[in-house]
Computed example of a mutant assay.
Amino acid sequence: MADPTDADVAFAADVLRNLLHRIEAANANAATGSPTGRYAFLVSHAWTDGAVLHVVYAAPPSDRNWGLARDTRRSLIDPSAWNAADDPALYYYLLDLEENWPGGAVGVPGEDPDLVRWSGDPLTTLPGRLSAIPEAHRYVAPPVDPSWIDRTPPVITQPRLYADPNGPLPPRPS
């Protein structure tokens, strides 16, 4: 792919910022038991390199380090670039993090705790160990903003009443 333009670089930085916000909001919801927060992703490092975003995280209860690399010039849902109506951060969150949630993969005794397991694309020239990632890429989560927590009560639906088509009609609710 051609060298990224200034617009590509700015777009990648914006997508990473939005993805990190989405992760922090979901983490806040997961911590409160909100139905909109299913998983926690504990980000340790995040950076962009040209048009490529990188996020290194843990997905409890897994104690392994996971990495995501994505060239933001390519859409995950279309063979072309993202269009103005798309929300790339949402798709990276849903498809790369939630759908491929690695939290069930727990390390084995003697496994290197510094190892980073990368997914996404491109996967070349990525640091294979946490200790190889520059300190400048360390991510510190902001304080939890209470406005991120979804306090909407879950929808309670009434059970459907089914009747025998050949039998008497059920009584009407009063």
Rank of each mutant, 00 (worst) to 15 (best):
W101L: 08
A69M: 05
L95P: 01
A89V: 05
G110L: 12
Y91H: 12
W47T: 05
L53M: 11
A46S: 08
Y91D: 12
V56H: 02
P79H: 10
H45S: 09
W101Y: 15
A46K: 00
S80R: 14
G110D: 12
R73G: 09
A69S: 15
L76C: 10
G103A: 10
A59F: 00
A85P: 01
R74K: 14
P109L: 14
P61I: 09
R64G: 06
A69D: 04
R38K: 15
L53F: 05
Y39L: 11
W66I: 05
S34F: 03
A40L: 09
E98M: 14
S34P: 00
A51C: 10
A84C: 03
G67P: 01
Y92S: 08
P79E: 13
A58C: 13
A89E: 01
H45L: 03
L42W: 01
A59C: 12
R64A: 12
G110F: 07
S75E: 09
F41M: 10
I77H: 06
A105W: 10
V55T: 13
P61K: 07
G103D: 01
W82C: 08
V106N: 07
A105I: 13
D63H: 02
T48H: 00
G104H: 07
L68P: 00
H45W: 01
T72V: 14
A51I: 04
R70L: 14
L42I: 11
A89Q: 01
R74Q: 14
A51N: 10
G103L: 05
A59W: 02
A40H: 05
L95K: 06
W101C: 07
A69W: 01
L94H: 04
A89R: 02
P88L: 13
P102E: 09
T36L: 08
V52P: 01
T36F: 03
